[in-house]
């Protein structure tokens, strides 16, 4: 069976930066996910997430990403779209999503398919709350993840 790891990245103390972790929490609350799917609260860890994802065939990373969209807008980046050379590590996470992708490319014996679900943040500053825009964007991100992991299931059958 295809193994899927869904990883929420970000710092829940830094407002919208924690959106990825909030998506994992929403998925956890749904409860009835396929057995091949593992949810990972990656939070601010970078390299330390590797053990959770390296056996997966599909890795879905959820993180706040500034891609120039509207606040709370969700955009999906697939495999090669996830550039790893742009800008030095300006993440507060020790390594961010792009470094994780890069490390998987170098170190993993089999390269999983990669999907980055980016949520455009509004407020990245010290707060445990999401901005209203990002809060309402979470649903969209959850939907996208569900569609992806459901899709895997269908293929397997």
């Amino acid at each position: 069976m295809t193994k899927v790891a869904v990883v929420g990245l970000g710092n829940i103390l830094m407002g919208d930066d924690g959106a990825g972790v909030r998506v994992i929490e929403s998925l956890e609350r749904l409860g009835s996910l396929p057995g091949n799917v593992s949810l990972v609260r990656g939070e601010t860890a970078g390299i330390a997430i590797l053990p959770h994802v390296e056996e997966a065939d599909l890795v879905i990373l959820i993180d706040s990403v500034r891609f120039g969209g509207k606040y709370g807008e969700v955009r999906v980046f697939r495999d090669e779209e996830i550039q790893t050379d742009r800008a030095p590590a300006v993440s507060m996470h020790d390594v961010g999503a792009k470094d994780l992708v890069s490390i998987l490319r170098l170190a993993s014996s089999h390269l999983p398919r990669l999907l980055l679900v980016g949520i455009e943040p509004k407020n990245v500053s010290s707060s445990v709350l999401l901005s209203p825009e990002v809060e309402s964007g979470l649903k969209g991100a959850v939907k996208i993840v569900l569609a992806e992991i459901g899709g895997e299931e269908v293929k397997e059958k």
Partner: peptide
């Protein structure tokens, strides 16, 4: 911005 900048 402290968020990742990853542009396609």
């Amino acid at each position: 911005s402290e968020a990742e900048v990853i542009m396609p």
